[in-house]
Computed example of a mutant assay.
Amino acid sequence: MTGGYRELAATLRDAIVRGEYPAGSTLPKQDELAKLHGVNVKTVRNAVSLLAAEGLVTPVRRRGTVVRDRPPMRRLSTDRYAKSKWKYGDVVAFIADREASGQEWKRTDQTQTVATAEADAEVAEAFGLGIGAPVHERARLVRDSAGKPTHTLTSYYLPGDVEGTPLVDPTPGPAGRGGGFAVLTRQGLEPDAITETFHSRMPTPEEIAVLELPAGEPVMVLHRTTVTRDGRVVEFARGVHAASRFAWSYTFRIPE
């Protein structure tokens, strides 16, 4: 083959998708790829860099260029929040995603750190507070069954809504039976509607470390606002997801 690095990247990408280079395998050395495809090593290097930026491969020291495992977690749409799961059962959102993806889980796959914090601009706007007002912060890191981080989720609450409840308990796992939504319901603050907004960006150095991200992988950022039937905000949450570890699936009726 002759051509530029984008053409070579396309050829290698197709080979990966076909399973010629399965997940966990190592691509041939760069000089071997250059000889095989009739290009120079610089072209190979640029093609591999492009595939790495796409999240298909990752360079591993002393091993080479490894094809990444890409079994995306299926993240359900509204079904992950169904009241049948948490109000009448004990399945919180991250567990619903695991079950929908056919993946094993245990409650302690979710860590938990709780603290009193000062509302930043986004949190303050969500609750209608002044910047710096005290809020309760509940931060979670979720790992898959193999121990690999998949995402973080940090929820904010008005302190008076959650004082003395399991939402201030740092024990790993969901906040008791049914998780946080069930706790809010027992407080007379039953969640009724959720607004979720997603956007993508490149991760911060801290996020790269926490989520163990390879070079070039972006993150998907979630903002979630949960309100009661009368429109009272009871939770504002921010999630940061490793982009290649999730597939978002939405099913809804088309509005008239």
Rank of each mutant, 00 (worst) to 15 (best):
T2R: 13
G4W: 05
R6F: 10
L12H: 05
D14Q: 08
A15L: 12
R18W: 07
G19T: 11
G19S: 06
G19M: 03
E20W: 05
E20L: 15
Y21Q: 03
Y21N: 07
A23Y: 11
G24L: 09
T26W: 05
P28W: 04
L33V: 09
L33Q: 10
A34G: 02
L36C: 03
H37P: 07
H37A: 01
G38L: 07
V39Q: 07
V39G: 08
V44H: 02
R45G: 09
S49T: 12
L50R: 15
L51Y: 01
E54K: 08
T58C: 06
V60M: 11
R61S: 10
R62S: 13
R63C: 12
G64A: 05
V66L: 06
V66F: 06
V67F: 05
R68L: 15
R68A: 00
D69C: 02
P71D: 15
L76K: 02
S77I: 01
D79T: 11
K85Q: 13
K85S: 12
W86H: 02
Y88C: 01
Y88A: 09
D90S: 08
V92T: 15
F94I: 08
I95Q: 00
D97R: 04
R98D: 07
R98Y: 08
S101A: 11
G102Y: 05
Q103W: 06
Q110Y: 00
Q112A: 12
T113A: 13
A115G: 07
T116P: 05
A117E: 05
A119C: 13
A121R: 14
A121G: 06
A121Q: 15
A124E: 04
E125R: 13
A126M: 10
L129M: 12
G130R: 11
I131Q: 14
G132I: 10
A133H: 14
E137Q: 15
L141T: 08
V142C: 01
R143T: 14
D144V: 03
K148I: 13
T154A: 03
T154K: 07
Y156G: 00
Y157V: 03
G160N: 12
V162N: 04
V162T: 00
V162P: 01
P170G: 06
T171G: 01
T171E: 02
T171S: 14
G176A: 01
G178S: 01
F181A: 10
F181W: 13
R186Y: 03
L189C: 03
P191E: 06
P191S: 09
D192K: 10
D192Q: 09
A193V: 13
E196Y: 08
E196I: 06
F198I: 04
F198K: 12
S200L: 02
R201M: 04
E206H: 10
A209T: 15
V210G: 08
V210S: 01
E212I: 08
E212N: 14
P214W: 00
G216K: 01
G216E: 07
V219Q: 07
V221A: 04
T225G: 00
T226Y: 05
T226S: 07
T226M: 14
T228W: 09
T228C: 11
G231W: 03
V234Q: 00
V234Y: 02
F236S: 03
R238H: 12
G239F: 00
V240P: 05
H241A: 06
A242T: 13
A243D: 14
A243K: 08
R245M: 07
R245C: 02
A247Y: 02
A247F: 01
W248A: 09
Y250N: 09
I254Y: 11
